[in-house]
């Protein structure tokens, strides 16, 4: 079974949210702000790329049924 690593949408999105929050609170340092902004754009790009995945894979798995009836 594939492990949950690749591009983790959740992580990328959360980081994007936290960057946005950083921008929302108080004084924005220009140098840091620019860096964060760039990172934010990068994350948004990654997320958008992930959003272009349209397929959901269905994988059938069998459970072992108890047969003591």
């Amino acid at each position: 079974m594939a492990t949950k690593t690749k591009i983790n949408f959740q992580k990328a999105f959360e980081e994007l949210e936290s960057i946005t929050e950083w921008f929302e609170k108080g004084e924005v340092d220009l140098d840091e702000g620019l860096k964060k902004f760039e990172r934010g754009l990068e994350l948004a790009g990654t997320c958008k790329e992930k959003l272009s995945e349209f397929e959901n894979k269905v994988k059938e798995i069998k459970a072992k049924y108890e047969t003591d009836i």
Binding site: T20, F23, E24, E27, L30, K48
Partner: peptide, 16 residues
């Protein structure tokens, strides 16, 4: 995400 990027941009412009 659009709103978030716009928000960041706005804050950056404001700060500038």
């Amino acid at each position: 995400m659009e709103m978030m990027t716009r928000q960041m941009e706005q804050r950056l412009t404001d700060s500038l």
